[in-house]
Every structure is written in structure tokens, then in C-alpha cells.
Amino acid sequence: MPYTATHLAQPPAREDIDSLTGAAVLEFGTPWCGHCQRAQPLIEGALKDRGDVAHVKVEDGPGQRLGRSFSVKLWPTLVFLKDGKEVERLVRPQGQQEIADALQVLAAPAG
């Protein structure tokens, strides 16, 4: 499941995120956030050929528990997960290369 253009209608539960298997990018933001809008081409470019990485796009905001459980403070925040565990995080990425570099961390062997 490469790049996802729209936010989920309902955010997943933290337990569902923790039980993911394989590589995933959890993206927190909103459709109206300017920083989020500017980052979309970068995120899409980095994920377009990465069918091995699940992209979970979550609309964040006040009272949204999933974002709070990941201590999200600024949008967009990308949390890179391997088997449900955070291995890397980018806040307001400025370039496609830094996203690609974080994706490489997902591909690295554990250890």
C-alpha cells in the first residue's frame, strides 16, 4: 500500500498500530495545514514505488488520542514503524531525500 492521498475517516486504535507487521509510515496532519500540503509531493515521491511500506494517514487535532499517544506536536509528523515499533521520526520534512533516508532505516536489518 504505497502513498495514500486522503486521511482515514476514523483513526486506528493505538493497539492496531502497535500490532502492525512489516514497515509502515504513520503520517499525522490535517487537510487544511499548509505545512502538510507542502509536504505531500515529498511524501508521495518517497513512497510512490514503496509497495512494501504501508502508509497510514491520520487526521490529527485536539482530542485525538492516537496523535497524543505518539507525542505529536507539529504537523506533519511522520512516524516510521517496523513491526509496530517506532524506529525513526520526521517532523515537517523539508526534502524528499530525508524521507527516503528514513525509509532506509525501515529496510535495515534489526540489531
Rank of each mutant, 00 (worst) to 15 (best):
D60V: 01
R50L: 02
C33M: 06
D83I: 12
A110N: 13
G67A: 09
R38L: 15
W75A: 07
L103E: 01
H35G: 12
A13Y: 06
P2G: 15
D60F: 11
L20I: 08
Q10G: 01
A9H: 00
Y3A: 15
E59F: 03
G22S: 11
L26D: 13
V58C: 05
L106A: 03
V105R: 05
R50K: 11
F80I: 11
W75I: 00
V56P: 00
R65I: 03
T30F: 07
D52Q: 09
R92E: 12
D101L: 06
V53F: 09
V53C: 11
H35D: 14
A24T: 09
G63F: 03
P31N: 08
G61P: 04
L42A: 06
K85P: 00
G111K: 12
A107F: 12
Q64E: 15
L26N: 09
P11Q: 12
V87E: 07
L66W: 01
Q40A: 10
T21S: 07
S71I: 05
D18S: 11
A46L: 05
A46Y: 05
K85M: 11
R68K: 11
M1Q: 14
D60K: 03
G61D: 07
P2C: 02
A110T: 11
Y3P: 11
L20N: 00
Q64S: 08
G45Q: 09
T4K: 05
W32A: 13
K48L: 11
V56A: 01
L42R: 02
Q104S: 07
L78E: 09
C36A: 05
A107C: 12
S19V: 08
A110S: 15
F80R: 10
T6Q: 08
V91S: 01
P76M: 02
